[in-house]
Design a protein around this nucleic acid. Structure first.
Lengths: 361, 361
DNA sequence: CTGAAAGCGCTTACAG
DNA sequence: CTGAAAGCGCTTACAG
C-alpha cells in the first residue's frame, strides 16, 4: 500500500482516485464500495471495510458535479417562490425542503420578488443544473417557463396556479374567492350594512389574482350587487405600497362597506393604515385571501380569511413528481382550503380530513 | 458547415460540442465566445455573432456540473437556517438570495429545524458541492461544523451566533438581552408591579439562548433582583409545544410579573394561550427577543421587543465574504438591534442610520 | 484568428 | 473478486 501525503489546507479534497491510491485498490472498487454496491459485486468484506474506514478517516465527500456530469442526472429540484416573508410561501418552501430531503434530492430555492425576469433567470439556472423537476409557485410567466423547458428533460409543476394543459397543484382560487366574497356579503347582511365591496391588492398580470377576481365578480353578480372596474384597487404585493394605496382609497371614497383583501401582504398594508382612520376601518367587513395566526388577534375587526393548505399543496406536488416519469399526461390537483371566521379559534383539521379526500384529481 | 439533427424531446440539451459541430468551429472557439471572452482572443465579430445566434436559437444553457468540475470552483453559496416560518429567518434567507444573485452565485438554502443532525448533513451537502462559502444562521453545532470544514477550501460565516476565533455576524445578544430585561424591570417599576421575571423559551444547548440568558441574569443582578434556575422555562422552538409549556407554568406558578420571551416562536405559544387566562396574562410585562409587525396589534398587552436587523446582518456577512479570500483572520461583526416599545409605531430608521455606523467590527 | 488535446472526479459496461 | 478504460461537458494552456 502506497501512502500519499495528506492533503494540506486549501488543496482539493480527497477523491476516489486518492483513496484508490492509498488503499491500493482500483477506482472501480472504491466507487462501488462508496456507493454501497459492494454486495452486488462480491467485493470482500475486508476490502469494503478497509475502504470505508479510509474514506471516513479522510472525510471523503463525493464531488457531486462529477457524479452528476457523468450520470446525466442531478438530483436537483428547483423551486421558485415570489417571497419568503410570508407564512404561506415560508411554509411552502419549508415543506419543499423537507420533501426533497426525503427523496434524497437537493433543494434549490429561488426568490423572485414577483418579477417575471427573476423567474425566468431562476428557471435558466435550474436548467443549467439539469434539474429533475422545477416547481414554480405562483408563477408570473407561466407560458414562457413552459417554452423554456421545451426540449429539456426537466419536468415542471406549477403550484398555486391554474392553467389548462399543465401540471398544477393549487387551491381552487375561483371557488375560494367565491365563498370568501359570499361570506363578506353575508357578514354585511347580518349587520344590515350597505355599501360597496372593494377588491384590494394585486396586479392585473398576476395569474391567480385574475382568477380570484372572477370568483369575486361571480359572487357579487349572484348577490345582485353588480360590479364595476372601479371596485378594484390594484396594488403591488408590498406592504408599504399597499398602505399608501389604501390611504388614497379612503381619502377619496366613503362608500366602503366590504373589502376582499387579496393576500396577506395588502392586509399588512391595511394594518399599518388602521391607526390613522380606525373608526372607518373598523366598520368594514374584511375577507382576506390568505391567512395568518395573528389575524385572530384583531379582535375589534370583522375578518374572514381563506387558509390555503401550503403543506398539502407541496405534498401533493411531490406525489405528482414521484408518479411522474411513468405517465406524461398533465394533472390538475386541487387542494382544499378552509374559510376561517374572525376571532374564532380555527379548529384543527380532523384526522379524517388529513387522511382521505385530501385532494382530488 | 455540417448540420446535425436537432435533438428530440428528452435528449440531453445542446452542448458546446453540439454548437461546434453545427457551426463548424472548434469547441475552444465556441467556449470562448459563449463566455464573452471573444474580445481577448481576437475572434472575429462574424464568428462570434454566428455562434451567439446559434446558441440562442438552440436555447443553449451551459452545464454547470461540467463547468464547475473543470474549474474546481462552484459559485455555490450555502445557507442553513433553522426555519423559514419566522420573519427573522425569512428575511435573512431572502437577503441571502438577493446578495448571492448580485454576486452571480448560486444560493443553496437548507432548513434544519433546529436539529444538529440536519445541520451537519446540510454542511456535508455544501461541501460536496464545493461551496465557496457556507453561511450558518443560528448554529446548533458550531464547533462540529468548523471541524467538518477543516481541510476543505470552503469558508464559513456564522450568523446570529457569537464565538471567539470564528467569523461571526450577529446582534450583540448579551447587550440586547440586558437592555430588554432592564426595560422589563423599568416597565414593572412604573406600574409599581412586584413579582418574578421569568425567561421563557429555548433549549440549554442552543448557542445564543445561553448568551441571552447571561444578559438576562446580569440585568436582574444589577437591579438587585437575584436569579435562580427556577426562573427559566425551557421549551423547544415550536409554538404548539411552547403553548403547552406555558399552560403548565401558569397552572403551577402565580408569581409571574415579567417575562423574557426568547424568540417569536414561544411568543406565538403565548398568544395561543392568552384566551385561556387573559386576566393574568395581561398583567404580565413582556419583553420579546425578536419582533414582528403584528406585536403592535396586541394593544391590551405590555410588550417590548428586540428587533434584530436581519437584512443588515446578511449584508454584513456578504461584506465579510467579499473581503474574504485576501486576509484570513477572523472577524466578529456586531450589527445593532433596536428596542421597540409596544403599541408605539416603531420609527423608520433615518437615512443617516442606514448609511453610517451600520455595524462595527 | 482558430484548433487539438488534456483533464476535472465520477460511474459503468466490459474484461478477466 | 477486481481493474483498465471510456466518456459526461467544460475550460485552458499550448501550438500553430
Amino acid at each position: 500500500m502506497r501512502e500519499k501525503k495528506k492533503s494540506a489546507q486549501g488543496t482539493r479534497p480527497v477523491s476516489i482516485r486518492g483513496i484508490a491510491g492509498i488503499t491500493g485498490f482500483s477506482t472501480t472498487t472504491v466507487s462501488l464500495v462508496l456507493n454501497g454496491r459492494a454486495g452486488n459485486f462480491n467485493i470482500s468484506d475486508e476490502t469494503r471495510d478497509l475502504i470505508l474506514a479510509k474514506a471516513k478517516e479522510l472525510n471523503y465527500q463525493p464531488n457531486l458535479h462529477a457524479r452528476n456530469l457523468r450520470s446525466g442526472r442531478s438530483d436537483v429540484l428547483g423551486l421558485t417562490v415570489p417571497t419568503l416573508r410570508n407564512p404561506f410561501f415560508g411554509e411552502l418552501a419549508e415543506t419543499f425542503e423537507a420533501q426533497a430531503r426525503a427523496e434524497r434530492k437537493l433543494a434549490l430555492i429561488h426568490v423572485t420578488q414577483y418579477e417575471r425576469a427573476e423567474e425566468i433567470s431562476a428557471i435558466r439556472y435550474f436548467l443549467s443544473q439539469q434539474a429533475d423537476c422545477i416547481f414554480v409557485a405562483n408563477p408570473m410567466a407561466l407560458d414562457e417557463i413552459a417554452a423554456l423547458c421545451e426540449g429539456s428533460s426537466a419536468r415542471q409543476i406549477f403550484l398555486d396556479a391554474q392553467a389548462a394543459g399543465r401540471n398544477t397543484v393549487s387551491t381552487d382560487h375561483f371557488s375560494a374567492a367565491l365563498e370568501l366574497t359570499r361570506a363578506i356579503v353575508a357578514s354585511m347582511a347580518r349587520d344590515g350594512q350597505r355599501g360597496r365591496i372593494y377588491f384590494f391588492g394585486g396586479m392585473a398580470d398576476h395569474q391567480v389574482t385574475r382568477i380570484r377576481l372572477d370568483g369575486f365578480k361571480a359572487a357579487l353578480t349572484e348577490a345582485g350587487l353588480g360590479f364595476s372596474d372601479a371596485q378594484v384597487i390594484w396594488s403591488p404585493f408590498d406592504a408599504e405600497r399597499s398602505c399608501e394605496v389604501i390611504r388614497d382609497h379612503f381619502a377619496t371614497k366613503d362608500d366602503t362597506a366590504g373589502m376582499f383583501v387579496n393576500s396577506i401582504v395588502p392586509m399588512e398594508g391595511l394594518i399599518r393604515y388602521f391607526p390613522e382612520n380606525f373608526d372607518v376601518c373598523r366598520s368594514v367587513h374584511y375577507g382576506v385571501f390568505d391567512s395568518s395566526p395573528y389575524l385572530r388577534l384583531l379582535t375589534s375587526l370583522k375578518i374572514i380569511s381563506v387558509k390555503q393548505d401550503s403543506q398539502g399543496i407541496m405534498e401533493a406536488a411531490f406525489d405528482l413528481f414521484r408518479l411522474g416519469t411513468s405517465h406524461s399526461e398533465k394533472a390538475s390537483i386541487v387542494v382544499p382550503h378552509r374559510l376561517i371566521g374572525a376571532n374564532a379559534c380555527d379548529p384543527p383539521p380532523s384526522p379524517a380530513d388529513a387522511q382521505e379526500g385530501r385532494y382530488t384529481s
